[in-house]
């Protein structure tokens, strides 16, 4: 029987050049991010721990420290960064070489699916056939995230933060797109349940070889609105083996209220315990990236 040549026996594709098109996408992404000094993913694994609020305030604290900061809302299906940074409703100018990002509180540059959706209640719905959407949805979402990173005209940035959706696997598409991702900050509560899930995310990030900056413990105690004394909410502090604590952010009802109004707490209440914790986390991030040490 005649031997049929295999895929690798044949010369490179001379028609569609799909691989060439994919390579061009990757090159465009690298060109765009060549002006970004440090990339940082904020990840939890667990939902409902206040990860996006931490991202917004960490970004705002870095900006307040005179860093040039951009934020990518990588939570395509539950985007909230535009609301948290007071950037909802901004229209984005498209030029041939890219899309101008929205500008939120503190001068933060932002790209989010929320800026593109038709209404407050509109979910992300793709046009493909619904019946087999599980086959193509993940690929399309990775492509959308790639475009957010590569097609946004970020200009020169010191830090680009990616706010990831819940799920211990959500770091993987980011790692595929950004193999040289600068680092990860985890967000967790002190509850056993939260730590139980976040540990899996820590494990996965270690497996992928991504540098770990540390973790922020959110809702670490309750700050009395009258006297400012911080009392416990979950008991003992969160701990992750070998992962440095960057800061413990106490729960503050005003933090949630200001978040709803698109005003990062760290900028509005700089003297508060929560703002101090965010500031401490931002300094630790800067120390990690800029001096290669932990605080």
């Amino acid at each position: 029987m005649k031997r049929i040549r295999t895929y690798f026996d044949l010369p490179p594709d001379t028609g569609s050049d799909v691989l060439g098109q994919i390579r061009a996408q990757v090159e465009r992404l690298h060109r765009r991010l060549s002006q970004v000094h440090f990339t940082l993913a904020v990840l939890s694994g667990k939902g409902g721990v206040g990860k996006s609020v931490v991202t917004a305030n960490l970004a705002a604290a870095l900006a307040a420290d005179r860093c040039r900061v951009g934020v990518v809302d990588a939570d395509l299906n539950g985007p909230c960064m535009a609301k948290l940074l007071g950037a909802r409703g901004q229209r984005l100018l498209v030029k041939a070489d890219g899309v101008a990002p929205a500008v939120g509180a503190g001068g933060l540059k932002l790209m989010s699916m929320d800026l593109l959706l038709a209404s407050d209640s509109a979910p992300v719905e793709w046009k493909g056939p619904e019946a087999e959407s599980f086959v193509w949805r993940g690929t399309l979402e990775a492509g959308a995230l790639r475009e957010f990173l590569a097609d946004t005209d970020w200009g020169a940035l010191d830090y680009l933060l990616l706010d990831l959706p819940p799920g211990t696997d959500r770091i993987e598409p980011v790692h595929d797109l950004l193999p040289h991702l600068g680092g990860v900050v985890f967000v967790s509560l002190a509850s056993d349940l939260s730590q139980f899930v976040v540990r899996k995310a820590v494990h996965r990030v270690r497996e992928l070889g991504i540098p770990i900056v540390g973790f922020v413990e959110n809702m670490a105690g309750y700050a009395c609105p009258h006297c400012g004394t911080v009392g416990p909410l979950f008991g003992a502090s969160a701990e992750f083996d070998g992962v440095p604590s960057l800061g413990r952010v106490p729960f503050d009802p005003e933090l949630a209220a200001l978040a709803d109004r698109g005003r990062p707490f760290v900028l509005e209440r700089p003297g508060s315990a929560a703002a101090a914790a965010f500031g401490q986390a931002a300094r630790a991030v800067r120390a990690f990236f800029e001096t290669g040490r932990t605080l």
């Binding site: 229209r91 498209v94 793709w126």
Partner: peptide, 17 residues
């Protein structure tokens, strides 16, 4: 820019871009 998102998103706002 944003070609995939613009051509595939079914719930995009008319004036967003």
């Amino acid at each position: 820019p944003l070609e995939t998102v613009r051509t595939q998103l079914g719930t995009g706002a008319d004036g967003a871009l």
